[in-house]
Design a protein around this nucleic acid. Structure first.
Length: 695
DNA sequence: GAGCACTGC
């Protein structure tokens, strides 16, 4: 877990996380040790709650195939357990101990902390691997990696033979990668009885994890360690959190933004000093709340003087992030108004009060329309507890829940719906296929996705030519697509560009599509941004526009001033260059000839269509509002106002993705010719299919 | 003329 600068500790150093954003990590990378002055690492390690379970833990690992560790925040499990395992000899004889994390930044932070504690150079005995960055060597004994990277490793080594122990940390977050990994590890266990699994999970998930890893004892197997228990062991380790007092509203609130603002003022008025963290759902909510509090501070200086109000969400600029992590001046009170990002991804020090709206934005996937929606939905009890826990990191705290106790007890779901049941499964299915899991529907998941979603994914992969009639990966296309670490539609586009002679252009487009946005964030400077966009806009759509921007960026000598003048995000462009280079290497390895089509934009559009034909849309005749319908599912969609084709409304387009608000908006849109659809995907756009309207 | 919960390969 990433830790951030705590006032009064060592000066932070900057970690540029390749996403273009900078976060502050304390030099010691762990707040739990920072209060102990000059104590040696060994002393510090012994003071962690997990230390007194060391022997018990090692015994359980010795005697059980799977051990589930339930550990609260600050127990030290993530940094200590891999070291205990190493000390007990699990890394002897050329074997490696693996520890997975859901996030890249956590991988780097934990690895560097453990290397420091062990007094070794990072990348040697202790190393880490994240996408595009491998800091390991042949001598690496403890390896931290994202769960996605471990899944990728299985493609080359399906039984993960080099690992003696695999620890899956933060398993309760139930990301898609974690769930796939858990399902596969359970399979591996049957083939490799000597392998040990450690699943680290929050209390609430431990039981279902245990049930999942419950395996029948196998009989008559030669060489199996006789004493090995197949039933998972569960070890609970207490955390370092302080007590958090929970307050509920007496009656349901109708406006949680207003309620949150009032609660902030009430705390500020009545409670001793200590920073406040407010959980709302998204940028809009947050900016409304910030505005209300700022106005309050202006109009009524008495009740709100001394408040420093700060928004927090992932899209913040570098400068705004700095404010969040700067220490609160004496006599002031910081109020951070945040999305879910403060629930798991980053930790703010100094929070004593939490205000929980009870809602967050969550993704839901509808396999019928094949559209992912982002909607405001009630959080689970597990999330509510996690949010409350953020108040107890420095001293006993208070959590104000903007819902009733009755609602919490009787209505709130115990846990959230796992991501795999809320997502498009195209990437997930191809990954399992690449690992030789043919019976996707029968796969032993920790939580099964709906058959409709799986069938929809199989259908798209079949149409892309990635799967054959028997739902097996095709050669070479299917295997190539599976090997490229991108959405299969983008991978198909890249591979198709080979025969069309425009791979240089398509690699650029693929790189741009895999980052959020190349434009500077636009609030308040909309007119300037629109004008800047016009300088690059292409009639063929956003993809060709990206090529114009990239060309301009290279011609400027990758100049940050040039980006600034043109309202382009310099850090995003640097990342595009970096990702493009990685993709170029992968494409070359797969035999794609690097070739530019110069200015023959037609082939570029065709390559885009070869990847994204499933997202084809036609403008509704006589539509004055620019209404389109998807060719496949007849969904009503519109071109997003950020697209260069907004209000241009060409008759036929393909889109890269959809954002859903009041309407379904297509982001990143390219013009196509309708005749291409049947040409590039004849089986998909059959004469008798839903595409009778192709005529 | 309007919007971006959060990750990851």
């Amino acid at each position: 877990m990433a830790q951030f600068w705590k006032p009064g500790t060592e000066k932070p150093r900057l970690i540029d996380d390749e996403e273009g954003g900078v976060l502050f990590l304390s030099a010691s990378a762990s707040s739990s040790s920072s209060g102990y002055g000059f104590a040696s690492f060994e002393k510090q390690r012994q003071r962690l709650p997990v230390y007194k379970y060391r022997t018990a833990f090692l015994y359980l690992v010795e005697t059980h195939a799977t051990t589930i560790v339930v550990g609260e925040t600050g127990s030290g499990k993530t940094t200590q357990i891999p070291q205990y395992l190493k000390e007990a000899g699990w890394a002897d004889g050329g074997r490696v101990i693996a520890c997975t994390q859901p996030r890249r930044l956590a991988v780097q932070a934990v690895a560097s902390r453990v290397a420091e504690e062990m007094g070794v150079k990072l990348g040697e005995e202790v190393g880490y691997t994240i996408r595009f960055e491998d800091a390991t060597s042949t001598g690496t004994l403890i390896k931290f990696l994202t769960d996605g990277v471990l899944l990728r490793e299985m493609m080359g080594d399906p039984l993960l033979t080099k690992y003696s122990v695999i620890m899956v940390d933060e398993a309760h977050e139930r990301s898609i990668s974690t769930d796939i990994l858990l399902g596969l590890l359970k399979k591996i266990q049957r083939r490799r009885p000597e392998l040990r699994l450690i699943i680290s999970s929050a209390t609430i998930e431990a039981k279902s994890m245990s049930a999942f890893f419950q395996t029948r004892r196998r009989r008559g197997l030669q060489g199996e360690e006789p004493a090995l228990a197949m039933e998972p062991a569960i070890l609970s380790v207490e955390g370092r959190g302080f007590n958090v007092q929970i307050h509920y509203v007496e009656d349901p609130v109708s406006d949680y933004i207003q309620a949150a603002v009032s609660t902030v003022l009430l705390i500020h008025d009545k409670e001793p000093f200590g920073d406040i963290l407010v959980f709302l759902t998204g940028q809009d909510d947050i900016e409304t709340a910030v505005k209300l509090l700022t106005e309050e501070a202006r109009d009524n200086r008495k009740s709100s003087s001394g408040l420093i109000v700060l928004p927090l969400y992932s899209g913040l600029s570098r400068a705004e992030q700095e404010l969040i992590f700067s220490p609160t001046p004496r006599g002031k009170r910081k109020v951070v108004i945040s999305t879910n990002i403060a629930e798991t991804s980053l930790t703010l020090e100094g929070i004593v009060y939490v205000i929980d709206s009870g809602f967050s934005k969550q993704k839901f996937y509808n396999p019928i329309s094949d559209i992912e929606n982002l909607v405001v939905a009630p959080i689970s009890k597990a999330s509510a507890r996690q949010r409350a826990g953020r108040a107890g990191r420095v001293r006993p705290g208070k959590c104000y829940r903007l819902y009733t106790e009755e609602y919490f007890v009787n209505e709130m779901a115990a846990e959230g719906i796992p991501e795999i049941q809320r997502s498009n499964l195209v990437s997930c299915v191809i990954q399992l296929k690449a690992l030789g899991i043919d019976n996707i529907l029968g796969f032993d998941w920790p939580a099964s996705p709906s058959p409709e979603s799986m069938i929809r994914a199989l259908e798209v992969l079949y149409s892309l030519g990635v799967l054959d009639d028997d739902a097996k990966l095709t050669a070479p296309l299917g295997f190539q697509v599976a090997e490229i670490p991108l959405d299969p539609m983008i991978s198909k586009m890249i591979l198709s560009s080979d025969q069309l002679g425009c791979s240089e252009e398509i690699l650029t487009i693929a790189a741009v599509l895999s980052i959020q946005s190349i434009w500077v964030s636009s609030r308040g400077i909309q007119k300037e941004l629109d004008e800047a966009k016009l300088r690059f806009a292409a009639a063929e759509g956003d993809h060709v526009t990206f090529l114009n921007v990239y060309k301009g960026f290279l011609q400027s000598g990758k100049s940050s001033q040039w980006c600034h003048r043109n309202y382009i995000n310099y850090h995003a462009m640097k990342k595009v260059v970096d990702i493009r280079e990685q993709l170029r290497r992968i494409a070359q390895r797969l035999g794609v000839t690097l070739k530019s089509c110069d200015n023959d934009i037609l082939v570029v559009r065709k390559a885009v269509a070869m990847g994204f034909f499933a997202n084809a849309c036609r403008l509704e005749p006589f539509s004055h509002e620019g209404m389109y319908k998807t060719v496949r599912t007849s969904q009503e969609v519109y071109i997003h106002p950020s697209s260069v084709l907004f209000r241009v409304n060409p008759k036929w387009v393909v889109y890269h993705s959809i954002v859903s608000t009041d309407r379904q908006y297509m982001r990143n849109v390219a013009t196509i010719e309708p005749s291409w659809l049947r040409e590039v995907a004849p089986h998909f756009y059959r004469q008798d299919g839903p595409d009778a309207m192709l005529h």
